[in-house]
């Protein structure tokens, strides 16, 4: 054991010299490495912020904006979109002079103030804790970082691929977005809309896609037993519809479910959330009938 201990002062001094030289070299190495290290750490923590944002987006946002940001028509606009990211697109249309990132941050934190004049059935809720939302500031930043990470794929889209559908499928089509329509009385507006609907009957397939039925309901027979996320599977609707409610035929039941969804809810979906109650206004009578027939058709074309 005594050999562990050096008595010679010269040896101790040499140990001291050598170790301080090694220490100096190590410190110099750190000094030289700091710039690349900080750069790597910066992108590392940005990357982690995006990862956190992905989890939050998946839990909170994908229900309306789609799991890959492609948007769900009638629920939320596309974010993974050329129109959204290009400076001459969305930013210019709404007259925003700040950066897109700030716009995203602010929209997530404070939500949309109203849905007046918007085609989206849902209002963007406030998420930031400062505005009464559920998220902390850092979480809002993470979600914004995740949304901004679509820039690469969005800017690579051609206009045809762009999933953003600005004001196309709105109930109030471009014909009604004018001062003349706004100045009409409510009855006159209703008549004008009825006339418009009668002239522009959509196919059930179009309605299914454009009115965001597919956001909650599933038509795939392969997943008939899979309860689905927000609404019942409709692949085998023709088998069940007639027996759901006492005294209603299959057609009557489906019709009622669309125009008056609150009348009856399938037991397993009571806690999921309500189906929008706006379809009676949005769909004309012809469209409704066609949709009911299509939904109950065992060999329907998709």
């Amino acid at each position: 054991m005594h050999r562990l201990y050096t008595r010679s002062p010269i040896a101790k001094i040499v140990w001291g010299i050598l170790s301080s030289l090694i220490g100096i070299i190590a410190l110099l190495m750190v000094l030289v490495s700091e710039n690349p290290r900080m750069e790597a750490q910066t992108i590392n923590w940005q990357g982690r912020s995006i990862e956190n944002g992905a989890t939050l987006f998946d839990n909170n946002c994908s229900r309306c904006h789609g799991p890959s940001g492609q948007g769900l028509v009638g629920l939320g606009p596309a974010l993974n979109s050329y129109y959204f990211f290009t400076p001459t697109g969305r930013m210019k249309d709404i007259g925003w002079v700040g950066s897109l990132e700030d716009y995203v941050l602010l929209t997530i934190a404070a939500g949309r103030p109203s849905k007046a004049g918007s085609q989206w059935a849902e209002v963007m809720p406030t998420w930031g804790g400062n505005y009464g939302g559920p998220m902390r500031g850092d979480q809002v930043e993470d979600v914004a970082a995740y949304v901004m990470n679509w820039r690469g794929s969005a800017l690579a889209q051609t206009p045809e691929e762009d999933p953003f559908r600005p004001f196309e499928d709105v109930l109030q089509s471009t014909e009604f977005q004018n001062t003349a329509f706004i100045l009409m009385s409510e009855e006159e507006q209703a008549i004008a809309i009825e006339e418009y609907k009668a002239l522009n009957t959509r196919s059930p397939q179009e309605i299914w896609a454009n009115e965001a039925c597919l956001g909650c309901h599933n038509l795939s027979l392969a997943q008939a037993d899979d309860p689905g996320q927000n609404g019942p599977n409709m692949a085998d609707l023709f088998e069940r519809a007639g027996s759901r409610v006492e005294g209603l035929t299959a057609e009557e039941y489906v019709y009622q479910s669309i125009v008056e969804p609150a009348a009856f809810t399938v037991a397993t979906y009571e806690n999921v959330g309500q189906m929008p109650q706006t379809y009676a206004e949005k769909l004309s009578e012809d469209e409704l009938q066609a949709l009911v027939a299509w939904l109950l058709d065992p060999d329907r074309e998709e």
Partner: peptide, 30 residues
């Protein structure tokens, strides 16, 4: 479900810092 970003560096808590020498050589080059 987890997500993983290209730039994220996850490391062993107690172990050789394998990126360090790379940083030194990058820093030295510049």
């Amino acid at each position: 479900t987890f997500w993983l970003h290209e730039d994220s560096i996850y490391w062993e808590q107690y172990g050789w810092k394998h990126l360090f020498l790379g940083y030194v050589s990058d820093g030295w080059k510049s």
